[in-house]
């Protein structure tokens, strides 16, 4: 293997970070989102409002889904002019998050009633989400959806077309990601944005993205998680 150099010289750590890992600030945002979710978990609880739900939904997407987009972000940076590669990444994220915001606008309204009225406790919500995930994993559309996540688009090099293309690219990937992961996100939402449930959900999404697991085994894991949270909800009663 070979060492990274620039201009024939060894490069500094920050320069190396910027050149090789242009996604660093995106990952920083994601960490901030995790912290915000953890710090506000108790305040949120079961007194969710529409706007509160939407706000936490977006935090959840930034925390859980954005770190899974390193490949798309690196590709965007690599295919952009050097001077505008971070702008390209921003465009990608705008497109990507735009899709999730649309979904959040719908779901945050739909789940206010069961969460707000205390008819659904967090563990039951998680159990339902993971069960839906297991069913989705075994459906024929899942693998097709997975490949939309890996879609690439040709990007115009500069001007408004470049911004448009980066946003389009992000939205295409976001759409694929939404198709792939909606049951996991539903589970997290129904759990009242429980950080514990989100960590399990993130783990499953990471494995699905990077390991291409056997879908049946993976579905079994989701069923076990569903059963576990289901049992917990009975105990909590």
């Amino acid at each position: 293997m070979i060492e990274e150099v620039s201009g024939g010289q060894e490069i500094g750590a920050l320069q190396r970070l910027n050149e090789r890992f242009p996604e660093y600030w995106m990952l920083g945002l994601s960490m901030c989102a995790w912290m915000a979710l953890a710090l506000t978990e108790r305040e949120h609880g079961h007194n969710a409002s529409h706007s509160g739900n939407l706000w936490r939904w977006m935090l959840m997407v930034v925390a859980m889904m954005v770190p899974l987009q390193i490949q798309g972000v690196r590709l965007t940076a690599e295919r952009s002019l050097w001077s505008r590669r971070h702008r390209g990444i921003l465009g990608f994220l705008v497109g990507y998050l735009g899709v999730w915001i649309l979904l959040g606008l719908v779901t945050s309204h739909l789940v206010v009633f069961p969460i707000g009225s205390n008819t659904l406790n967090w563990a039951t919500g998680a159990a339902i989400g993971f069960l839906v995930e297991a069913v989705w994993l075994l459906s024929p559309g899942k693998r097709l959806a997975m490949h939309i996540c890996n879609k690439t688009l040709a990007l115009s090099p500069c001007g408004w077309r470049a911004n448009r293309d980066c946003i389009s690219y992000g939205s295409v990937v976001g759409y694929g990601c939404m198709l792939n992961c909606w049951p996991l996100m539903l589970g997290c939402l129904l759990s009242g944005h429980s950080v514990v449930v989100m960590l399990f959900g993130y783990g499953l999404a990471w494995v699905d993205r990077h390991e291409m697991p056997n879908q049946r085994v993976y579905a079994l894991v989701a069923v076990v998680l569903s059963a576990g949270f289901g049992a917990l909800s009975l105990v909590n009663k």
Binding site: I2, W82, P157
Partner: peptide, 29 residues
């Protein structure tokens, strides 16, 4: 010793798609 591989950067690209239909085509940018 294996030579280091310099990092590459894009310095220009075509703005539109190109369709090849059997005859020579040229893209300028």
């Amino acid at each position: 010793i294996m030579k280091s591989q310099p990092r590459s950067e894009m310095i220009g690209a075509s703005r539109t798609k190109i369709a090849l239909t059997g005859s020579a085509q040229t893209a300028s940018f």
